[in-house]
Every structure is written in C-alpha cells, then in structure tokens.
Amino acid sequence: MNTYYGNIHALKGIDFEVNDGELVTLIGSNGAGKSTTLLTIAGVLKAASGSRIEFNGHDLTKLSPPQIVKMGVTLSPEGREVFPELTVEENLKLGAYCRKDVKEIKDSFDQVYELFPRLLERKKQQAGTLSGGEQQMLAIGRALMNRPKLLMLDEPSMGLAPNLVLEIFNLIKEIHKQGTTILLVEQNANMALKIADRCYVLEVGRIKFSGDAKEMQNNDEVRKAYLGTVNKKK
C-alpha cells in the first residue's frame, strides 16, 4: 500500500501479511509510518490508488471505516482516544456499536471485565478520570468489544510505568492465546519481539527487515538500530 498526507508520501509501497492466528509486530523509529499503516488498514486514511489491502478475500481499500469495523478489523489507536466524558461502560458499549448480535454483547462485557477487573470496578467512572494505564486497558477492552478477527494495537505501552508495561504485554499475550489475530505496533521493540511470532521493521515508509521474531532479536543490525546496544544476546 501507498499512503499520502497531501504531498507527503508517508507509506512508500509497503507490503506485508498477517496470517490467521498470528501475532505480528511492526516496529520502527518515530515517524516511520507505523500509525499511518494501521490507520490506512482501518480506512480512516485513504490508501492511494493502486493499493490493495486484502482481508479474508475482501479489498478493504474499497470499504468505509464502519464497513471495515463490521468485517472484524478493529484498531485501538495510539494515545488511547477514549471518550473522556463517557463512563467506562459507555465506552465499552461503543466498542460493540457495529455488532448486530445484541444478545451476545453481554458475554463480551463479561469477557472484557474478566480480563480487566479494574474496568469492572470503575464501570460508572468517567473515562477521562482514569489513570493512563486504566485508559489503555479501556482502549484495548473497547476494541475487544467488537470481537475482532484482527486486532490492531498502536503503542499500547506508551507512557506507562514499567510494571504496567509488563502487565499490558501479558494481557496481549493472553488475548492472543484466546485466539485473536493481532497486529502490534510498538516502540518497545524488545518486549514486542518477545511475544510476537513474526516482525516487520519499518523505516521511513518502507519495510527494511522482516522475519521470525526470535531470529530478529538476534539480528545484529536490528538490535543495534532498534533494540539498543545494551540488550544482551540470548
């Protein structure tokens, strides 16, 4: 796919795939185009003509954001983007906005509350008054309310204290284990590679490396550029 912001060519013909059941991570430095990639898949940004984004045989570039959500492709955006003056419960309800199976939405509430008991305790609280970590849980929970077939997470660990980062990553692992396909964008490449199956490295709008997550952790070039030199080889 190719994506432009006006004249700025942000995604310069990137090509990648996520297979059913995988946890794939997309890493790269600031401004590489990670968020742009996810927003283009979600249909919020228009892919340039000639792009093709295929999901279970459907071309997503021809669909509107609501249609894409209905297909089961859900994005939890960078910076959480919760609805600040709505309650936790209302935020979650909005995550299920496109679902027609009204009766089963209650089950999803139960699942999300089981995964994030803190959201249950705070279900009547305004989302804007939650802590950063709780807002992140809400953003992920809200995305899960759509029962996504493909869950896209944009920097879920951003701005969180180290122990919370660990908690969030464990939860992502758990969500993946329960059968959700995940495309994870992270600054925290070390952590992302630990839980991912495969990885793509993005650099100024192009894919620079791709491969198995475990191998990538041992790739000297990748480690130097993205994982920091302090990281010891396993």
Partner: peptide, 19 residues
C-alpha cells in the same frame, strides 16, 4: 450514545464504526 461519542472524539467515533 453515538451523538455523544462523535461530540467528544470524532476520530475515535470513526474507529468504532459510527457513521
């Protein structure tokens, strides 16, 4: 609920599939 969502954060409302 959709009206209040669009009111507070129209970008996020897009991602919920709200028209």
């Amino acid at each position: 609920l959709a009206m209040r969502a669009v009111e507070q954060n129209s970008r996020a409302a897009d991602l919920m599939g709200i028209n």
